[in-house]
Computed example of a mutant assay.
Amino acid sequence: MADLKYYDVILKPIVTEKSMNAMSEKKYTFSVNPDATKNQIKEAVEKMFPGTKVAGVNTMNLEGKNRRRGNTSGKTSKVKKAIVQLTADSSDIEIFEGL
């Protein structure tokens, strides 16, 4: 298990139509480090965004897709997504406010 700091856990937010609709229920979607655990993701969100309290974390491991370019074949890198549910009294995450 890797020694991850909280700023290494969350890589980027995922902005899709489905994730934007889930924001009304205080659910936010992030791309996270594949080695991160649910507890590390919870701790990272609470430290990076002050005033937030995490109620739960759901994670998905997505394997890389097969890709071809001419006669050469390979795989894209694997990705881990996390859907973070905030509590009702928690403040919203400002990174998504202008979208």
Rank of each mutant, 00 (worst) to 15 (best):
M1L: 10
M1Y: 08
A2D: 06
K5D: 10
K5H: 07
Y6T: 12
Y6D: 08
Y7Q: 09
D8Q: 10
V9P: 04
V9D: 02
I10Q: 04
I10D: 02
L11W: 01
L11S: 03
L11T: 03
K12P: 02
K12Y: 06
K12G: 03
P13I: 08
P13Y: 05
P13L: 06
V15F: 02
T16G: 03
K18D: 11
K18Q: 09
K18V: 07
M20G: 13
M20K: 15
M20R: 06
N21P: 13
A22P: 00
M23A: 10
E25R: 15
K27L: 03
K27R: 15
Y28S: 04
T29W: 02
T29N: 09
F30I: 06
S31D: 15
S31C: 09
S31H: 06
N33E: 07
P34E: 02
A36E: 00
A36W: 00
A36P: 03
T37M: 01
T37F: 03
K38A: 07
K38M: 12
Q40R: 04
Q40S: 05
I41T: 08
I41R: 00
I41W: 01
I41D: 00
K42S: 15
E43R: 08
A44N: 06
A44L: 04
V45M: 06
V45S: 05
V45E: 01
V45A: 06
M48C: 07
M48H: 06
M48K: 07
P50W: 13
P50M: 15
K53A: 09
V54A: 03
V54F: 05
G56F: 05
V57Y: 04
N58G: 01
N58R: 14
T59V: 08
M60F: 12
M60P: 10
L62A: 15
L62T: 12
E63R: 09
G64V: 08
K65L: 07
K65E: 10
R69V: 11
G70V: 02
N71Y: 13
T72S: 13
S73T: 11
K75N: 09
K78G: 15
V79D: 09
K80F: 05
K81E: 13
A82M: 07
A82C: 08
I83V: 15
Q85R: 08
Q85D: 02
Q85W: 03
L86A: 01
L86S: 01
A88V: 14
D89E: 11
S90V: 09
S90R: 15
S91W: 12
S91F: 14
I93P: 02
E94L: 10
E94W: 15
E97V: 11
L99C: 08
